Amino acid sequence: MSQDFYQHIFAKQQNLEAVPSNREITAWALKVIHLLYPEQTGQLYASVDELKDEFLRLENELCEIMRATKACSNCDTSKLAKKFFEGLPELFRILNTDIQAIFNGDPAARSEFEVIRTYPGFYAISLYRVAHSLYIDDIPLLPRILTEYAHSKTGIDIHPAAKIDEYFYIDHGTGIVIGESCTIGKHVKLYQGVTLGALSVDKSMANTKRHPTVEDNVVIYSGATILGGETIIGHNSVVGGNVWLTKSLPPNSRVYHTPNHRILKRLSMKLFGEKK
């Protein structure tokens, strides 16, 4: 490589101010979640005052992260950090509804502790809810870092701007995509491989509603793709696996993909140990 290349990279480093790494930012969010759900780590505190001090420490840490990343040029980072932590009781309440939805909806779930400790769906949802709380206060960068980290860990890609109501249930989850302007109602259940995406990725549509609306009590099975900002899945509907939708469904709809299957060759039962 040429000396000019080294000089170019070095110049970039000199112009880049020190900011917390994505790992440090994500570690902060995970510590908040672990305080809300000690089931995830088993870490306990000796007193309420000690717990309160830890919340205050994380509030100050958020303030410093926002200052270091220049999250906003003319805002009061202390005020924003305080607002986020004052909203934690409501965030905790909503997360508890998500836990309840997963526990009630999955026959394999033996306890809420198991959901909190092991389910990738809850892991992704919890980081999304923290990220969304930051996003609605116009804090840039940090929300996307958090949801992309959850994406890398679980395969579940939720944009922090998406609006998702309570009792949200992700089953399995790998490959789910929920776009930026998506709106999801209460008691919605998504299986793996579901895409709630845009019909077009043209840059001119950046500030428009490009992603679907899913109303209350909807189930969307694995591999379904639903596209478009004007597409509405009406309440109490079921979308079957591998369905492709670009138009709205009225409430109480049932839509399924119906492939044609043809048996090419029937295998001899001898292969399975059948005796003559």
Rank of each mutant, 00 (worst) to 15 (best):
I145A: 02
E148H: 06
N217P: 05
I176G: 04
E64C: 09
D98Q: 01
E50F: 01
L264K: 11
R266K: 12
K79M: 15
L127W: 03
M66R: 01
K153W: 10
E215A: 11
N22R: 12
A131F: 12
Q14T: 03
F92W: 15
I178F: 02
V218I: 13
N236E: 01
Y6M: 15
A206E: 10
D137I: 13
I226H: 03
S133E: 10
F168A: 02
G121C: 02
V214E: 02
T174G: 07
T97E: 11
D138A: 13
G197A: 12
S73G: 14
T246P: 03
N74E: 12
C72S: 11
N242H: 12
E148K: 00
I94D: 03
G175N: 03
A109T: 14
F122M: 13
L271H: 11
F92M: 09
H8C: 13
R67G: 07
I263L: 02
K186A: 08
A224Y: 00
N260T: 14
F5E: 12
I25H: 02
E59T: 06
D98G: 00
L196R: 04
N104V: 09
L271M: 06
E54S: 06
A108S: 13
H132C: 03
E59L: 08
Y119C: 02
I158H: 01
V239Q: 00
I25G: 02
N242R: 11
L91Y: 03
V214I: 13
N242P: 07
Q100V: 02
S268V: 13
D53R: 10
S248H: 01
N207S: 10
I178L: 06
T154M: 05
G185D: 05
N252M: 05
G185L: 09
A11D: 08
W244T: 13
S253E: 01
E230L: 07
A161I: 05
H8T: 15
I233Q: 03
G193P: 08
D157L: 11
L91V: 06
K163P: 02
K153E: 00
L51R: 15
I33W: 04
Y128R: 05
G87S: 14
L56A: 13
P212A: 06
T69W: 09
Y221G: 06
H261T: 09
R23S: 09
E64G: 08
S222P: 01
V255E: 01
G87D: 07
N252Y: 04
I139C: 01
Y6L: 14
S2D: 11
T213A: 13
V188E: 01
A27W: 10
G228P: 00
H235C: 04
K275N: 14
C63R: 03
Q13C: 11
